[in-house]
Amino acid sequence: MGFLPTRNFQESVFAASSNFSGENLKDNYVQRNKGCFNCPVSCSRYCSVQDGPYAGTKGEGPEYESISAFGSKCGNDNLEAVLHSNMLCNRLGLDTIGTGNVLAWSMDCVDKGIFSSRDLGL
């Protein structure tokens, strides 16, 4: 449909969107469905990364908004990095959607010269 939040909403089409497909997530990372206590729906999932630089990543999620926040909004096409970012936020008690959006906004600010990567301590 041409509306995937991309690069902090500067674009609406992400060329690597197929990396984030439900099929790819289910076939390669979902270990089992997970639900809230006493809920019969089990609409969440438990994912893990088995190989590569993010091996050992495991945890609940991610949701669509978290995938877009850490993925297309940041111009990141690596689903395993998105899963790892989701896991880190969950462990630190951070909201995944808000954190990903702040990162995308910060990247946009650096791209536009509003502040430099040095201002971010990078």
Rank of each mutant, 00 (worst) to 15 (best):
M1L: 12
G2F: 06
F3Y: 13
T6W: 00
R7W: 05
N8K: 00
N8D: 11
F9I: 06
E11V: 02
E11K: 14
F14Q: 06
S17M: 11
F20M: 05
F20G: 05
F20Q: 03
F20C: 04
S21C: 11
S21F: 08
G22K: 11
L25H: 04
K26L: 10
K26P: 00
K26Y: 09
Y29Q: 02
Q31R: 10
N33Q: 09
K34I: 02
K34S: 07
K34C: 07
F37S: 14
N38K: 13
C39D: 15
P40Q: 03
P40K: 13
V41A: 09
V41P: 00
V41D: 11
C43E: 07
S44F: 09
R45E: 10
Y46N: 00
Y46D: 03
C47W: 01
V49S: 02
V49G: 02
V49Y: 00
Q50F: 03
Q50W: 00
A55N: 13
A55P: 14
A55G: 09
G56W: 01
G56M: 07
K58F: 03
P62Q: 07
E63D: 10
E65D: 14
S66D: 08
I67A: 02
S68E: 13
A69R: 01
A69S: 15
A69G: 11
K73F: 07
G75D: 09
N76S: 04
N78H: 11
L79E: 03
L79M: 14
V82F: 04
H84D: 08
C89N: 12
N90I: 06
R91V: 01
G93A: 05
L94R: 10
D95G: 08
T99V: 02
G100W: 01
N101E: 15
L103D: 00
L103E: 00
L103W: 01
A104G: 10
W105S: 14
V110A: 12
D111T: 07
D111Y: 04
G113P: 12
G113L: 07
F115A: 03
R118K: 15
R118M: 10
